[in-house]
Nucleic acid binder design. Structure first.
Lengths: 207, 207
DNA sequence: TGTACATCAGTGAACGCGCGTTCACTGATGTAC
DNA sequence: TGTACATCAGTGAACGCGCGTTCACTGATGTAC
């Protein structure tokens, strides 16, 4: 079993293709995910991919799924990090803040992955609510945070209505601006500061 | 001069190419702007375009420029429409509202054009401020509206600082959501209502 | 424990697509004398 | 007013590119007897 010569069978090509896809998207954005490019970077013939994925679309969805998981993880971590107050109402506000800042944090840290995440996630069906009634995790976290604020007395039920849209608009909009728009390439410190302003402003407007 | 047989010389091919480009982008978004497709829809050979544009990029910029003008026009009209109050402070707030709603209105009415507008506009240089110090008209209108609010006593100078970012984030984010995201395809009435909620929320948060 | 053989995971070559762009050209226009 | 000729605006064919996908194949693996 010579370790230097590549074996005919790869071993775990499926995972290798997904990893290569992640690397390409990370570097070059959603459009960098081409079937030939992925197989090339693994060092395998183009059609080898068809043993593991029905077509490019399927591979694309699989990579997007991984990326979306990571986005949700970042949001979850940030939400828990930001929640520091012992006051219940205040803590629930901090959680909402964390959800928004986590989304922005991921977008800025990994713009390529972020692009694929929102592209495919938005592509899906009608968007926030997929056909099977499932809500994508990031959006679900926002809803949960807002509901939590009502429960903890930080938001009236009246103001809760439709509150998800100003929140999602601000946060998603800022992520887009910082990633591909006017603020692209600005220093991290500045972006963090502005992200805080954006999130705090919308929260202030909600209450 | 038979009118039925096409003359060898087109007459105004440059304009015809731009019009065809606008039509294609309107229908199919930014990616639909291909040189071959544009010349094909005018009924001319592909390389005829090279008499009027250096390359695809140049044509693309020209079409994007037209679209950006139309976006600015829509914003301007909406700003003036929304400004109804005789109270100066209130009127300046209404103008800000109109600027935001105009941006959203254009995006929803013409998603294809909107896509090209933000793509190429963002592409430019670093974004909001181009290298020659010029600010793109839509963003300039936002800045002017905010400055007007300070002048008319509707916003303190302190709160004016950085106020453009929450505003732009909300409005741009909602346009994106309504155009390609979770709210894509929702009835116009609902989108208009939510646009109002989004814009009013951020304005409330600002003050 | 050894061997036949089905199954699986890859290869290599090719197809057809639409793209942007370039080449050498030709038909039409307009200007100088 | 007529004619030579430069200039301009288009044509037609071709190039090379990278793409997704399909075809017939072959090398490796594992299982049944």
């Amino acid at each position: 079993m010579p370790v230097t010569s590549r074996p005919y069978h790869h071993g775990d090509l499926r995972t290798a293709l997904l990893d290569a896809g992640l690397a390409l998207v990370r570097e070059g954005g959603a459009d960098a995910l081409a079937l030939r490019e992925v197989t090339r970077s693994v060092g395998v013939s183009p059609n080898a991919a068809y043993r593991h994925f029905a077509d490019l679309r399927t591979l694309r969805f699989a990579v997007a799924g991984i990326v979306q998981e990571r986005l949700a993880q970042t949001m979850q971590r940030r939400r828990d990090d930001e929640c520091r107050s012992s006051d219940r109402a205040e803590a629930s506000v901090q959680r909402l803040r964390g959800v928004g800042l986590g989304y922005i944090e991921f977008a800025i840290a990994e713009p390529g992955w972020y692009e694929l995440a929102i592209l495919t996630h938005d592509d899906g069906e009608n968007g926030a609510v997929t056909t099977d009634g499932t809500v994508p995790p990031p959006f679900a976290m926002l809803l949960a945070a807002l509901d939590g604020m009502v429960e903890d007395g930080a938001l009236t039920a009246e103001r809760r209505a439709h509150a998800e849209w100003p929140c999602w608009s601000s946060v998603h909009g800022f992520a887009d601006i910082a990633t591909r728009g006017p603020l692209k390439g600005q220093p991290r410190l500045m972006l963090d500061a502005l992200a805080g302003v954006v999130v705090d402003t919308v929260i202030a407007g909600l209450r």
